[in-house]
Design a protein around this nucleic acid. Structure first.
Lengths: 215, 215
DNA sequence: CGTTGACTTGAAGGTATTCAAGCTTTGTGG
DNA sequence: CCACAAAGCTTGAATACCTTCAAGTCAACG
């Protein structure tokens, strides 16, 4: 794990987050770790045994095939939790997309966290299944539309949606090439469904149209 | 829920299964329900609140899009458990593929099953993520190869693999059409990688070759 | 023995990929 | 602050893969 700490990163207002401590009394402050854009939070094969809540920034969770193909199984944004697995070793890589801070919750030996972890695991399962539907049934436009709707919903349903990740990341998440992602963005712009303030910031002009497309 | 009970179904030797009862003492016998091939175990929108362990048979879990496209998110075989969800209502359909018997575990109000359910949820999450990798990165041959390997492993790694589901089911699981599934089977036969004893029974002749293909 | 449903095979077509080139944005050093 | 380089993104043309549509085969069942 490659945390880097620096005083140059100004902490934005912290998102509200679940209190995951066990028991009562003065909650111990969990250690906060900082990661530069592109740096690794954990790697496939590393020992698991903690989970992480994002204070700010964004994280991609992915696997690699032998020939280098990459499948991003999830993006996580501020306030969200990731890192728990069925096994004692990680089967995925987790990387900071941007400058990111995470709060680490180590699972002490002998402590049963089932009650806290089950809802998180079920949430993750539900998301994975939704993603499965997209990859299994939908074409390029539908995939991108579903992705934008999801990102919008997770950012409070506002018109302005922040995309912390690159086109490459989006492609590897949706099972498309960067070229196809780019072409779909262009098409959505031409149809007047979205506008791009800049590459990483989408304005959803016609949310209804986008929702129609996403299924 | 559409259970049907009949004396005509002979019970095969029961698979070993986890003891999921809470507490100790004489374990209460959980009700056993029988389902005919194609019958519904639960439907999307129905109230959840139980989980199911398969005594014999096989089950498909799926969702439908508005236009009728279907994504099968999982197959479950004898001994496996399914039916728990993040929400209080089901977001999926569950159907018996063959004549199937399931043991139903109702979750009593106020009883905390987290400890029992967490490993099952994590297992499901892990499977869904594996499936995501297949749908996101792999072509038709790789998908079918991965599917066959998975089925073989879940049936004890034997050469003879039973496919309880139709080509249609396999297609809807792998994000392919039945024609493509059929063509891939034909190609694998021509290459001498598999043999078909009959439509629902595959002999894996060269497991190494199949494993190479599956990634 | 004929009918039905499931599967296979073939040919044509469409969608996404690949390869290649050009454009934009971002960061760095002068 | 500008110039340049590098990376990321967009666009175009050709290709590949999978789908669609259609016909034909096979197996199970009455």
């Amino acid at each position: 794990m490659n945390a880097y700490t620096t005083a140059r990163i100004a902490l934005p207002p912290q998102p509200t987050h679940l209190n995951l401590q066990v028991g009562s009394g003065p909650a111990p402050v969990q250690p906060l770790s900082f990661f530069a854009a592109g740096s690794e939070i954990y790697a496939q094969g590393e020992k698991a045994g903690a989970f992480y809540q994002i204070e700010f920034g964004a994280v991609r969770i992915y696997r690699l095939l032998a020939d280098g193909r990459r499948q991003i199984s999830a993006f996580h944004l501020a306030g969200e939790t990731f890192g728990f697995e069925a096994d004692t070793t990680h089967h995925f890589f987790a990387e900071a997309i941007n400058a990111t801070a995470v709060r680490t919750f180590r699972v002490a030996a002998g402590v049963d966290m089932s009650r806290q972890l089950l809802p998180l695991a079920l949430k993750g399962l539900s998301r994975a299944q939704e993603h499965l539907l997209v990859l299994g049934c939908q074409n390029a436009i539908e995939r991108v539309a579903a992705f934008l709707i999801d990102m919008a919903d997770r950012q409070g349903g506002l018109r302005q949606v922040d995309l912390p990740m690159s086109r490459m990341d989006i492609g590897d998440y949706l099972g498309l090439t960067i070229e196809t992602v780019s072409r779909v963005f262009t098409k959505l712009k031409e149809k007047g469904v979205i506008r791009l303030a800049n590459l990483r910031c989408v304005e959803i002009v016609r949310q209804d149209a986008l929702r129609d497309m996403s299924e």
